[in-house]
Design a binder for these strands. Sequence first.
DNA 1: TTACCGATGCTCT
DNA 2: GAGCATCGGTAAA
Length: 200
Amino acid sequence: MKLPEFYYHNPDVVALSRDLIGKYLFTCIDGDLTGGYIVETEAYAGVIDRASHAYGGRLTPRTQTMFAQGGVIYVYLCYGIHEMLNIVTSSEGQPHAILIRAIQPTEGLDTMLARRGMDKLKPNITKGPGSVAKAMGISRKINAESLQGDTVWIEDRGLTFADEEVAACPRIGVDYAGEDALLPYRFYVKGNIYVSKPNK
DNA sequence: TTACCGATGCTCT
DNA sequence: GAGCATCGGTAAA
């Protein structure tokens, strides 16, 4: 079943990032249903996190979605090419977000293959945040969309991973964040073939 | 297997 | 004008 609104109001974005591992993410874009379960996330902890777009309370046209009440998505363009999907959490004015870095696809494989321009299934179809967004049909057009609607949502289907199956380590590609780059805010399922980069 | 590098455009200074 | 929360191809080993 769809995660309830209050799930996203939790002020502990790091704990939520861990909890999202194993939850099912779905999109229904242009009538095509696609989905899978989350195997890799990263937490971005609001105004005190130098790796976050909202560090220091930076409120701009781009980041204002992060300041919304938890339960919507934040989509932005990175490196001019890749769109990234984040889950906004916590309360209004607290710019917490969780980057979805990888999923294990279970639904709508044909649609995902077509969107990715691939002819057969390979792990990199949804490995890495840019790949997830592309395979799921997510773009900036649905920035700030609610997770309670019928375009994009997350379900709990009872799949869980024990703590010893989930690794916590520093985030990827945030070297500019100084000491905050070392925080163990990245979570992933050990050994899962859809997880990007260091994986053991 | 690892390592490099180009693509490409928006955001903020 | 500089700097990105990246990906996939190519090259070398």
